[in-house]
Amino acid sequence: MELLIIFISASIVNNFVLSYFLGICPFLGVSNKLEKAVSMGLATTFVMVLAAMVTWLINNLILIPFNLPFLQYVSFIIVIASLVQFVEMFIRKTSPALYRALGIFLPLITTNCAILGLALMSVLREYSFIQSLVFGLAAGLGFTLALCIMAGIREELELAPIPEPFKGAPITLIIAGLLALAFMGFAGLITG
C-alpha cells in the first residue's frame, strides 16, 4: 500500500516535470515527436531506476557508515554521469536509429536535474531500497507521461492555425504552463 502511494505520488501528483519543474530541458527539446518522446522517456526511466538503486547503495553502504553525507552531491553526480555514459553506449550498440533520433539529448540526461533531484529526494525522505526503486520507476514513468502528453499535443499543433508570433517556442511554453496547471488538479489526492 505504501509503495502504491509512493508510485502514484511520484508519477502523477508530484510529477517531476509538471509539479517540481525538474527536467524541463528534454521536456521541451524532445517533445516534438511522440515516438522520440517515448524512447527518451524510457531511456530516462531506465537511468532513473538504475540511479535510484546505485545511489541508495552508495549512500547507505558507503556514505552513511563512513559519516560522509556531505559527499552525496558529488558522488551522485559521478554515478549519474557514468550511468548515462553506459546507457549511451548500450543504445548505440543495440539501436543506432534510436541513438541518432535522441542525438544530443542522450548525453544531456547527465545534466538532467530530474535524476539528481530523484536521488537527493529519496535520501531526504529516507526511503528503503525497495521504496527508492519504486520511487525511481514512478518518477521515470511520470516523466515519460509528461513527455508523451506534450508530444501528442505538439503533433496536433503542427496542423493548428497558430498566430504567427506564437509559433514554435512561445506556444510550447504556454502549453507547458497549462499542463502544469492541469496537473495541479491532482494535488490533494495524496499528500506526501
Partner: peptide, 19 residues
C-alpha cells in the same frame, strides 16, 4: 573522503572501460 571518491571514480571508470 578522498579514498571514497577516488574509489568510486575508479570503480565507475573500470565499468565504463569494460563496457
Amino acid at each position: 573522503s578522498i579514498l571514497t571518491m577516488g574509489g568510486l571514480g575508479l570503480f565507475f571508470a573500470a565499468i565504463l572501460a569494460i563496457a
